[in-house]
């Protein structure tokens, strides 16, 4: 009788042990996926993360906050005007996406937040954004304000090269695009290389889903 009970206990212990092992492996697997795999986007923020509060200036010199765009959805990219390739590629895709949105375009405000406020003042930004889309607004401001927004959305950025030479340094940075709802909450992200068709469809789908809930 006692040996039966002992067997039973041992089985139970094995069962619990296996369960723990399964949990730990699953956890480790996920951790490995998140940290080491190329396919995982490192630096992806949690959906629902809040973009605000912030106090910045737009490319026309107006003070703006996270409340400045009313009921609009924000299509946000981070970059800098000295960026000769990656930022123009993303902005061109987002600009074409704006044109593909049709009637929905009125609900979306595209924003470029500079990660290089030292070089990107309002005037420099204004020439840059107007080259891409008439609706695109460039935002600049105090480094600490930009850092706050960047950290909320897990945006990495760091100057590289000779920082003392304004005609030479570049800025390493995250290349995701962000769709933010009218309450300032992150809805989805767009990886670098997303086509305008993909971006515009995802925007429409997100707006549809959100509006059907309310």
């Amino acid at each position: 009788m006692s040996s039966d009970a002992g067997n039973h206990n041992r089985q139970k212990q094995w069962g619990v042990g296996l369960l723990v092992l399964a949990f730990v492996s699953f956890g480790l697997y996920n951790y490995y996926q998140a940290v080491f795999c190329d396919e995982t986007i490192v630096g992806i923020p949690e959906l629902g993360a809040e973009i605000g509060p912030f106090h910045l200036s737009d490319h026309q010199g107006h003070s703006v906050t996270h409340h400045s765009y009313g009921e609009k959805y924000l299509l946000v990219s981070f970059g800098y005007t000295f960026c000769p390739d990656i930022c123009p590629t993303q902005l061109a895709s987002f600009s074409d996406a704006m044109d593909l949105l049709g009637d929905t375009a009125g609900q979306v405000q595209p924003l470029l937040i500079t990660l290089d406020p030292d070089r990107d003042n309002e005037e420099v930004l204004s020439h840059f954004v107007s080259a891409f889309h008439p609706k695109l607004i460039g935002l600049t401001g105090a480094e600490r304000e930009i850092a706050k927004v960047a950290s909320r959305l897990n945006v990495f950025y760091a100057k590289a090269g000779d920082e003392s030479d304004p005609e030479s340094y570049s800025v390493d940075h995250s290349t995701l695009g962000y769709l933010v709802d009218p309450h300032g909450k992150l809805l989805t992200v767009f990886p670098y290389g997303s086509t305008p068709e993909f971006v515009s469809e995802r925007i429409k789908q997100n707006i549809r889903e959100l509006e059907s809930k309310t």
């Binding site: 570049s170 390493d172 290349t175 995701l176 670098y192």
Partner: peptide
């Protein structure tokens, strides 16, 4: 003033020129 050969290194979703 300067002309250089550059490339991009992609680390996760971060681009480094």
């Amino acid at each position: 003033k300067k002309v250089e050969l550059h490339t991009h290194i992609k680390e996760g979703d971060i681009m480094k020129m």
